[in-house]
Design a protein around this nucleic acid. Sequence first.
DNA 1: CCAGACTGGCTAACGCCGTTAGCCACCCCC
DNA 2: GGGGGTGGCTAACGGCGTTAGCCAGTCTGG
Lengths: 166, 166
Amino acid sequence: MSRRDEVLAVAERLLEAEGPEAVTMRRLAAELGMQAPSLYKHVRSKDDVEAGLQERALLQMGAAISTAGPDLHALAAAYRAWATAHPRLYRLATGRPLRRDALSPGVEESAAAPVVAAAGGDEHRARALWALAHGLVDLELADRFPPGADLDLTWRAALEAFARPA
Amino acid sequence: MSRRDEVLAVAERLLEAEGPEAVTMRRLAAELGMQAPSLYKHVRSKDDVEAGLQERALLQMGAAISTAGPDLHALAAAYRAWATAHPRLYRLATGRPLRRDALSPGVEESAAAPVVAAAGGDEHRARALWALAHGLVDLELADRFPPGADLDLTWRAALEAFARPA
DNA sequence: CCAGACTGGCTAACGCCGTTAGCCACCCCC
DNA sequence: GGGGGTGGCTAACGGCGTTAGCCAGTCTGG
């Protein structure tokens, strides 16, 4: 585990526990028992830290949903479960543009593969399904749905549209 | 137009023209020909400014999509058109939690009404449709789709699932 | 007609932020 | 045993949101 990964691990823990405003260079450094400028020996910038968190999120999420198999409902459940278990990491990862050049090769594809499989290989259907899941999660995490709405039912209604054969 | 609304108008213009990092209290003040602390005579905090922008976005977007009528494709096109015409305002508005207490009453409902209508009155279908549109827009604005993907086709594929009768 | 309050500007300052420059102790290898 | 890389440190800069405190103008009630 490189020093950079240690920083990222601390950042992830801090982000999830106390929210994005707690993830400052000074705080990260303190958590690692050092001073803020020393962080720059392991990490290029704060943006670099966030890019690292984004990649971590992609990896974790890809792993989580690839265990679900090709069933649409199982896949959706896994997606939703991971996102709500790591809400701040999810929002940080999807909230910033994807830096493909800073990403280890293959990460993006392997995270997308289960979705494409569940969509029967149709890339447009896969993207639509992904967008549906992301939209539901994102709106839920941003408290956009009226309080008391039964989101289980909403997910069922949403997936039914996709499950129905053409 | 109250002084607060003037601040919000400048903030919106600045946000869309130069991005969120340009919307600072000092910059806003300069744009209005005053010093930063004077802003606090018209606005409670920067968070208050962002809440105001969120409400503005909701109002504008509600107006934009209510002109589309009950047709699913027209509604989706209007939604997508507004979001891509005001990408940073869209992301700011959906990126922060909805402060219902700071919202003029009725704003949320009237923005949601066209979607519910297009979904045939089914609230779960309406939320799913909303999430689908939001997800597509949000992922596109965050550069998550592979470059070169034909998003028009993706939107068509997505809407077909919802248009198909049960 | 004038006194008082209210409005809306100002300067100075605080504590935080990310980041850079420059320094130095340690350790490993030739 | 000396040289260079590694990984800490302090000091500092400019920018951020925000507060305190001040004051000129205006408007209003007696």
